[in-house]
Design a protein around this nucleic acid. Structure first.
Length: 862
RNA sequence: GCCGGGGUGGCGGAACUGGUAGACGCGCCAGACUCAAAAUCUGGUAUGGGUAACCAUGUGCGAGUUCGAUUCUCGCUCCCGGCACCA
């Protein structure tokens, strides 16, 4: 080995040899245990960012560790290639999305290879390739035949100037991001997948996902939002039709004082025909956002429709209002309002001076202050005629039974989850494989005519999808009858592609959607990706897995056995207030920070002009905050191993990582000191075999540290996924090895074992330099990627003495060093005899003594 | 607004099952080496008091449970993620 650590040379040579030897290509092998390690594939935005580096390093560490355990490890990589940014690039720079996307993929692929990730590149796929998306088109037609897809109208954000549909992200303060026009709500026919048919299964199966974080499962449960209640029909006072609502609280029925319907509700639209004020109100709701977060935060407004419904039990007339916060896409688009027992209803009733009638009271007899807010707990009924005095369960049952007998109610399970709207009015996506006859009849595309290829050679004019103005794309004829057909010009939501790619990776060249190789590899053993996907992507992928299972394509019902959600990568921001409301952000690389004697940042100046800039908060690396750190620059300066080591060391994978350039240098220093110590050791020539029976006390202590480190690191990597503490443990070991200067035969043998251990434990994290060190330590024949994970020698872990903490009233006052098997009575008397303890308890009496074996003694005094 | 997560030295973080708060690293300070610098090595580094032993305080804020709370419970606060067309 070279004396000097030169990452560039080592890494490129090793990566070339991995590539030529196809080290990470895998085949199904039923004699070996498989391990499928998957990281969420990237959107090819142009360059890798630190979030990618972090995500893929975590996956690579797990993959390489599993391989050292002897498993048949598959780690694939591909590209989530359809999406909005490619269209923006086309609009801004007139580059066709296909060309832009493919050149980004080529660049990012070289970046991933430069980081040394152990991917099986033979399995690479890009979702924009017809060979990939043809199968989801085929699958969609299958689902159509099963009745699991349907078409109905839904609201979109419509930009009246650009004449196009906008994504929520493209609507800023109610206006189109390019045109600045006030965005309108527009209803258009769109395609849906019936995910609600799987709601119960998606909910129930969460209980079996032991390898998923509780937080993600909770979010999915709340998202699905199963509730049991009643579908209730209120008869309109003036005619024989009914207003249908869903409620989980029939016990509060006597407190219903008004009904609220969505602006698009038929009752509201009918009332608007006769009342211009109502029509105006509904029109004013037309600029409402389709985003729930915006709707929930806006001012709650409404208007009486001037009609009433009959209360099913009292016959009283209840007014019907139209309200901007009731959404047509939720349930029936109408709600029964009980202001005394629902906070939102209470606020609306208070604003519009509607009656608030309390009908539920706490069981303990207290009277809640209804003037201050709604009482939302369950309790005992009052003001409810013959139901007074009943509790929630009895009231629910008795009121429900009566309404059922009247034919006014049906028990119903309702979900918050809505069917998945998969239509997008975009160009750069997978064409939806359906055709329409002249009268609107739907004809799914025949399997033999798939794929419906997205035309890639296009001229981009304006901002809306070129497909909408390409008759050569949408004008076609029926293959048998020859009658004219119009092709759907909408494309799929890009979540469609990412809902099944994990299955395609098992058999990327299959002559069907998947073949029987999925049975060997699926389910994914561990899936790694950002927490922001906790609900949507991860729920859709689970849904697709069940659809594929029910189509007979595979047997697994859940796609991901374990889930590791990664935190964001953040960095401090620097800016100047240049007026116009928006600060100007400067790259941290362009700023010089001055610190005080303690290292606190006190001032920052822009390096080029020497003038001060403000030090902002630590935020997620982004273009808008100009606080991104380009991985490429760091890889070129320090090598891939240092970047990998730092990202794994800086924080645990599920927490946010705050980027620090100087700490990166620390990671580089650590590798260099490991390199130096190994070099110094091997320069002295071969060493004797270790004989644990003849070690002296210091050698035994050092060897115990080696095996404690193996124990700790193994647990950290395999069970806890805490790579930062695993690395810290190896750093401690290296410090101990560096301090020992025992040149005796057995001293050198222990050092050899220590260095081999450090190299093996770090191999998954920094695979390049450890490969060189492994060979220098005398392992020329066995490649490090397939070296066995080190085993703990339990005998080496024995200790002669343990440290016991002595507390008085919970405060540490002394330490004792005792034999591990020391009796409790002896420890107590030693603790009481300690001079510092004696002094503190001198004028007090001992109440009791708590002994935690092997850890501490707490003397409680008064 | 709703759902989920988080707040520990100058900084990133550690403390895994309620048992020594601050492992490991960065930064900073001092020293060694050097003509000098870089690199490297050694020591120190929560805050306040004390020469020291040691003492007091301290894990966002306020309460509670406990012999003992960063860890459990309740209330609050600030920050972050998601909210169905960003991916």
């Amino acid at each position: 080995m070279e004396e000097r650590y030169d990452p560039g040379a080592i890494e490129s040579a090793l990566q070339a040899s991995w590539q030529s030897a196809r080290t990470f290509a895998v085949q199904e092998d039923r004699t070996r245990e498989k391990f499928y390690c998957l990281s969420m594939f990237p959107y090819p935005s142009g360059r890798l960012h630190m979030g990618h580096v972090r995500n893929y390093t975590i996956g690579d560490v797990i993959s390489r560790y599993q391989r050292m355990l002897g498993k048949n490890v598959m780690q694939p990589m591909g590209w989530d290639a359809f999406g909005l940014p490619a269209e923006n690039a086309a609009i801004e720079n007139n580059i066709p999305p296909a060309e832009w996307t493919r050149s980004n993929i080529d660049y990012m692929r070289t970046q991933l290879q430069r980081l040394g990730f152990a991917y099986d590149w033979d399995r690479e796929l890009a979702t924009c390739d017809p060979q990939y998306y043809q199968w989801e088109q085929w699958f969609f037609t299958q689902l159509y035949d099963k009745g699991l897809v349907y078409r109905k109208t839904a609201v979109v954000n419509w930009d009246p100037i650009d004449q196009t549909v906008l994504a929520n992200e493209q609507v800023i303060d109610g206006r189109g991001w390019r045109s600045g026009a006030l965005v309108e709500r527009r209803e258009i026919p769109q395609w849906f997948l019936r995910i609600t048919a799987y709601a119960d299964e998606l909910l129930g199966d969460l209980d079996d996902l032991e390898g998923w974080p509780e937080a993600v499962k909770t979010m999915q449960r709340n998202w699905i939002g199963r509730s049991e209640g009643l579908s209730l029909k209120f008869k309109l006072s003036d005619d024989n039709s009914f207003l249908e609502v869903f409620t989980t609280r029939p016990d509060t029925l006597y407190g219903a004082t008004y009904m609220a319907v969505a602006p698009e509700h038929p009752l509201a639209l009918t009332a608007a025909q006769h009342d211009p004020a109502i029509a105006d109100f509904i029109a004013s709701c037309a600029t409402l956002s389709t985003a729930e977060a915006v709707v929930e935060k806006m001012e709650k407004r409404g208007m009486s429709l001037g009609i009433t419904v009959d209360h099913p039990l009292t016959g009283e007339k209840i007014p019907v209002w139209v309200a901007n916060f009731v959404l047509m896409s939720y349930g029936t688009g109408a709600v029964m309002s009980v202001p005394a027992h629902d906070q939102r209803d209470w606020e609306f009733a208070t604003t519009y001076d509607l009656p608030i009638i309390p009908v539920v009271f706490p069981a303990n007899g207290q009277i809640p202050d209804i003037a201050a807010g709604a009482y939302v707990e369950k309790g005992i009924l009052k003001n409810s005629a013959e139901y007074d005095g009943l509790d929630y369960a009895r009231a629910f049952e008795q009121i429900t039974e009566r309404l059922e007998a009247q034919g006014r109610a049906e028990r119903k399970v309702q979900y918050r989850l809505r069917d998945w709207l998969v239509s997008r009015q975009r160009y750069w996506g997978c064409p939806i494989p359906v055709l329409y006859e002249e009268d609107g009849n739907i004809v799914p595309e025949a399997a033999a005519r798939l794929p419906v290829k997205l035309p890639e050679q296009i001229e981009w004019q304006g901002v809306s999808s070129p497909l909408k103005s390409m008759p050569e794309f949408f004008d076609t004829t029926h293959p048998e009858s020859g009658e004219p057909l119009t092709r759907e010009t909408d494309t799929f939501d890009t979540f469609f592609e990412s809902s099944w790619y994990f299955a395609r990776f098992c058999c990327p060249d299959a002559k069907a959607m998947v073949d029987d190789r999925v049975e060997y590899w699926m389910p994914v053993d561990i899936y790694i990706g950002g927490i922001e996907h906790a609900v949507l992507h991860l729920l859709y992928a689970r849904f697709f897995q069940k659809l594929m299972r029910d189509a007979g394509l595979m047997t697994a019902g859940e796609p991901f056995t374990r889930l590791l959600t990664q935190g964001m990568v953040c960095k401090e921001t620097y800016f100047r207030d240049v007026g116009q409301g928006k600060p100007q952000y400067f790259s941290p690389a362009a700023v010089t920070v001055e610190t005080d004697a303690k290292g606190r940042a006190i001032k920052a100046i822009l390096t080029t002009d020497g003038e001060p800039v403000e030090i902002g908060s630590v935020e997620k690396m982004s273009k808008s905050k100009n606080n991104g750190v380009d991985p490429q620059v760091l890889i070129e300066r320090y090598g891939a191993d240092t970047v990998r080591l730092y990202t794994m060391f800086a924080s645990p994978p599920d927490q946010t990582l705050e980027w620090s350039d100087s700490a990166v240098e620390g990671a580089f220093r650590f590798i260099r000191s490991l390199w130096r110590l190994t070099h110094k050791h091997v320069q002295k020539g071969a060493c004797a075999l270790l004989d644990s029976a003849i070690l002296n006390a210091d050698q035994k202590t050092l060897r115990r540290q080696i095996h404690e480190t193996i124990d700790k690191v193994t647990d950290d990597i395999s069970r806890r996924y805490k790579f930062n503490t695993a690395i810290a443990a190896v750093m401690e070991l290296l410090n101990a090895l560096t301090r020992s200067s025992d040149d005796s035969e057995q001293g050198r043998a222990v050092l050899q074992e220590g260095l081999e251990t450090a190299v093996l434990l770090l191999a998954p994290i920094i695979p390049h330099c450890t490969d060189t060190l492994w060979r220098a330590l005398g392992h020329d024949l066995e490649p490090l990627v397939d070296a066995g994970w080190p085993q703990v020698d339990r005998g080496a872990l024995a200790r002669d003495a343990v440290t016991i903490v002595v507390q008085v009233n919970g405060k540490k006052r002394a330490e004792l060093s005792v034999a591990p098997d020391c009796a409790a009575e002896q420890m107590e008397s030693m603790a009481l005899a300690d001079p510092n303890v004696e002094r503190i308890i001198a004028d007090k009496s001992v109440v009791k003594i708590v002994v935690v074996p092997g850890r501490l003694i707490n003397i409680v005094v008064q």
